[in-house]
Design a protein around this nucleic acid. Structure first.
Lengths: 125, 125
DNA sequence: GCAGAATATATACTGAGCCATATATTACGT
DNA sequence: ACGTAATATATGGCTCAGTATATATTCTGC
């Protein structure tokens, strides 16, 4: 029979909210909302955190299925999980709007734009 | 001069999300979204938790300014804070929609409707 | 109208478990 | 070998539930 190709996953708020209750993880997700794909070193640069710290938090987000990853040579690119249900992505967009211009989220976006030697393709100039 | 009477407060996602990252607190808030005012004993009944537990979580929500309280005799009625910014209430509504019919949230709503001897006025029959 | 009981809610204290950070090390890909 | 990323380990801090207790308001009998 007909299948739902784009079947959404079923995520609980008690998966989503503990994940985005942490500074580092929320900042990563909000960056991923703007630049649809980012690698670990870009997130490390933008947030000014240690690489193992970012890596560990990304692992948590991956286990919660909030992000998906894709390896390309040395780099591992993360993105918001494409099958995240609508209510969850709406929550993220509401959040992005709620914090627009606020610290440290605005600075993160600026830092990402100003990053020298962005790896991979020049996705966003 | 003209004043903004309904000036919204300025809440950070790092206040909101840790607060709703806990089962008990999220369940309380989602109940408050449906019944705009509830007292401690009603929430205690609906969630089937111990009274000090509910009270302590409500205190956290109050300190985070996610709820406001109003005393009426013996009862203290809680409601979603009326000045919560739009993005935050939108997040709550998105969540309510995302979990509609799911456990334990659906059961909480049912339990509240079936509670015998609801205190205060018969607000919702 | 006051003393004491009853009810509704809040707080203090404890111990257990979980989570974050830092550091060091390992694995993977060129 | 070098750059990128993940994992291992140890330590410190935070959060939670449970218990006991405190406070506030109302009710009752006198």
């Amino acid at each position: 029979m007909a299948q739902y190709i784009f079947c959404k996953m079923n995520i609980s708020p008690l998966t989503l909210y503990p994940a985005i209750a942490h500074d580092t993880r929320l900042r990563c997700l909000l960056l991923l909302l703007e630049h649809d794909e980012l690698c670990v070193c870009e997130l490390t640069y933008a947030l000014g955190a240690a690489q193992p710290t970012i890596s560990r938090h990304l692992a948590l987000l991956r286990e919660a299925e909030l992000v998906s990853d894709r390896r390309e040579g040395l780099w591992i690119h993360y993105r918001i999980h494409p099958e995240l249900p609508a209510w969850a992505t709406n929550v993220l967009h509401e959040t992005a709007q709620g914090v627009s211009g606020m610290s440290p989220f605005a600075e993160d976006l600026a830092a990402m734009k100003n990053m020298p030697n962005r790896p991979g393709a020049p996705r966003c100039a």
